[in-house]
Amino acid sequence: MLSIRQIHFSYNEQKKVLQGVSIDLEPGEIFGIVGASGGGKSTLLKITAGLLDASKGSVYWNNERVKGPSERLIPGHPEIQLVNQDFNLDLFHTVKENILVKILHLTEKDRIRFCDELLDLVELKSMEAQQARYLSGGEQQRLSIARALALESEVLLLDEPFSHLDAHLRLKIGAYIKQLVEIRHTICILVSHEGDEVMQWCEKIAFLNKGKFSRVDEPQAFYFEPSNFNEGAYFGELNEIKEGKTKILFRPCEYKVVQKGGMEVEFTDSVFFGAYWKSFFKTGNKETIILYANKPLKKVKRIELKSKNTKA
């Protein structure tokens, strides 16, 4: 079990980054953390990995406290691997050497096989003889992910791991990690400011707001039952309209077209997004709303909301 208990971190009295963050995670779990950029997500992962000292609180792996850099000659924990935007590559080693150096415990045959498997996964096989310093930012990120996977650690911490990757690579690498977690019972924490990305892979998600987990819930709950507009907007497009003094939140898919009753709307524009069309409307109060459909909704005059998530 990975236990994060009452973690606080601050640079000074005026800049408090984390204020009592706690969570317990079991093997085989992919846990997501969503929140604003600069809100403390990366700091929490560094503390969890033993690369940064917390101001207060502790991290435990299998009931043993994870020591920070002030207590270790070489910072970090051998069973907790962090992939972040620093990449942490051996820049003057080749792509292949960057992976092979992490699996010296295997036989030569198994090292080559595993290395080739990871290079194919991140699509760097054609660059295996190239020094890491000559890779683009996206290629370095892919190599960093491959190195982390090579270590087969018990805990994998991913800090915005797909930010520089093409859509097909995100799906390919994400599916591999999900399978790895299931087979090896790894604990994985995925951090991003893109909630819709985190929803694809995680069974539970925490929303980090003002240094605390303001909510821990399932992806579907974050999407269809947002606590407020700020939180809900991280998990996809969200409409907000007023009905008297009450604010109503609803997703662009939570409506049906009606001929009578409901809410009057005026079509303004449509944009094609591949799997669906995004149509823009003005309400009677001149509020802009977005509706999804498999075709433009130019002739729609009235809609009825399937559910009303009301906020005072």
Rank of each mutant, 00 (worst) to 15 (best):
I241R: 02
P219N: 10
E243H: 00
G244L: 10
P219T: 02
G236P: 06
Y234W: 15
F235N: 10
F229T: 02
G232A: 09
G232Y: 03
E218F: 11
N228T: 03
E240Y: 03
F235S: 10
L238Q: 03
E243P: 00
N230T: 14
L208H: 08
F222S: 05
L238T: 01
E240A: 14
P219S: 10
L208G: 07
K212W: 06
I241G: 10
V216E: 01
F235E: 15
Q220S: 11
S227L: 14
F229E: 09
F235A: 12
F207I: 01
A233S: 15
E231A: 07
Y223P: 04
E231C: 04
S227R: 09
F222G: 03
Y234A: 14
Q220L: 14
S227A: 13
A221K: 10
K245M: 05
G244A: 13
D217R: 01
R215N: 03
F224E: 07
N209T: 00
A233V: 15
D217Y: 03
Y234P: 11
S227D: 03
L238W: 03
E243I: 12
N209E: 13
Q220N: 11
E237Y: 00
E218L: 13
G211Q: 00
G236Q: 12
R215A: 13
Y234I: 05
K212H: 03
G211M: 05
G236N: 12
G236L: 05
F207S: 04
N228Y: 06
F229S: 09
N209P: 00
N230F: 14
G244F: 13
F224G: 03
Y234V: 11
Q220A: 14
K210Y: 13
Y234K: 05
N230M: 12
N209M: 00
G236T: 02
R215Q: 07
G232E: 06
E218R: 14
A221V: 13
F235L: 14
S227E: 08
P226G: 04
F235I: 09
F235H: 08
K245I: 03
F207C: 01
Y223I: 02
E231R: 08
N239Y: 09
Q220D: 15
N230V: 15
F235V: 11
E240F: 07
F207N: 05
E218Y: 11
E237D: 15
K212F: 01
S227H: 06
K210V: 02
F224Y: 10
A221D: 09
S214G: 04
S227W: 02
N239W: 06
E243L: 12
R215L: 11
K242P: 00
K212V: 07
L208D: 14
N209W: 13
L238A: 04
K245E: 15
Y234Q: 09
E231I: 08
A221Q: 07
F229G: 02
G244H: 09
K245N: 14
N239S: 12
K210W: 09
N209V: 01
E218P: 00
K212A: 04
E243F: 00
N239K: 11
K212Y: 03
G244P: 08
K242M: 14
N228P: 06
I241V: 15
P219R: 02
G232F: 03
N239H: 10
K245A: 11
E243G: 00
Y223H: 05
N228K: 07
R215D: 06
G244S: 11
A233M: 13
N228A: 06
N228V: 01
V216F: 09
E218M: 12
G244M: 12
E237I: 00
A233L: 14
K210Q: 15
S214V: 05
F235K: 08
Q220M: 11
D217I: 01
F222P: 05
